[in-house]
């Protein structure tokens, strides 16, 4: 069941020039799956009319904590970055279908930029199930890499940077780990990166899920604004995604 909850801000930590981590508390925190997202209302921001969809970065059910990793992309997220401890945040959740959780196998999780947000929750859940996920993070430069230690607790963590300042140089699809064999790939990041990953997965015949982030209004499947083209026609990213198997999409790859 979907809920609207007023969360209390417990922490707002700036991670680099444009990313921040929010720790939010509510006694009513519902169960959520990796890959699901929330729709955040941003008050008192004159040009922010609609809610902002943001991936679930992590949850702590025992303590009622929801973690959101956010990148400043415009006025709405800029305003959100200024929120202070003890302020309230009105959130609609949980939304979206989430990633398919495998029972066995070797899995590669790829996050590009702020696309790492849902990857932590996924890696943590896979780790809890006894799987040993490999997480590959792609960034432009070393300063964009965040929360390395947190990720390191749950997976084998690898990096690429476009300028070679950390990890291997280039894009995630150029990383040497891709020479290994995988049973599944899970990916979230810029569309160009996800398409490159989808191309690799298709060539290698590996199951691959991607999380899309189309612009949306309601998050409930009512407004039909966020659709993506699939082999079965237009589907709502908010309710029929945001996670899609690449076989269902009509990407030219």
């Amino acid at each position: 069941m979907k809920k609207i909850i007023d969360f209390t801000v417990r922490d707002n930590r700036r991670l680099n020039k444009d990313m921040f981590l929010l720790t939010l508390h509510s006694e009513e925190l519902p169960e959520m799956k990796p890959g699901q997202f929330v729709n955040v209302r941003i008050d008192n921001s004159p040009h922010t009319f609609l809610r902002r969809p943001i991936s679930v970065h992590d949850i702590d059910m025992n303590n009622g904590l929801l973690y959101l990793l956010v990148k400043i992309a415009g006025e709405g997220t800029e305003h959100l970055s200024q929120i202070r401890v003890n302020e309230k945040l009105n959130i609609l959740l949980p939304l979206g279908n989430g990633f398919t959780m495998p029972d066995t196998g070797k899995h590669l999780l790829i996050g590009g930029g702020v696309g790492v947000a849902p990857i932590l929750f996924l890696a943590k859940e896979m780790n809890r199930k006894g799987l040993s996920p490999i997480v590959l993070v792609g960034c432009r430069t070393k300063e964009d890499i965040v929360l390395q230690e947190t990720f390191g607790n749950y997976c084998r963590l690898l990096h690429t940077t476009e300028d070679g300042s950390y990890g291997e140089t280039g894009y995630p699809t150029q990383h040497s780990v891709l020479a290994e064999n995988f049973d599944g790939i899970y990916c979230c990041g810029p569309e160009a990166m996800m398409k490159a990953v989808a191309r690799y997965a298709t060539q290698k015949n590996i199951e691959c899920e991607v999380s899309l982030e189309n612009m949306m209004a309601c998050g409930l499947g009512a407004c039909l604004c966020c659709v993506t083209e699939t082999k079965e026609g237009n589907k709502c990213v908010c309710t029929e995604g945001s996670v899609f198997n690449i076989k269902d999409l009509t990407w030219q790859i």
């Binding site: 004159p46 040009h47 922010t48 009319f49 609609l50 189309n214 612009m215 949306m216 209004a217 009512a222 407004c223 039909l224 604004c225 966020c226 659709v227 993506t228 083209e229 026609g233 237009n234």
Partner: peptide, 30 residues
């Protein structure tokens, strides 16, 4: 929602743009 005699796929994405205190949509009766 708007119902038509035959199925309609609506318009291609992007179909929405936020504006000050509002939004533009071009769903196209999907």
């Amino acid at each position: 929602k708007g119902t038509t005699i035959n199925q309609r796929e609506g318009n291609p994405y992007p179909r929405m743009s936020e504006t000050p205190s509002g939004m533009l949509n071009a769903v196209g009766l999907q």
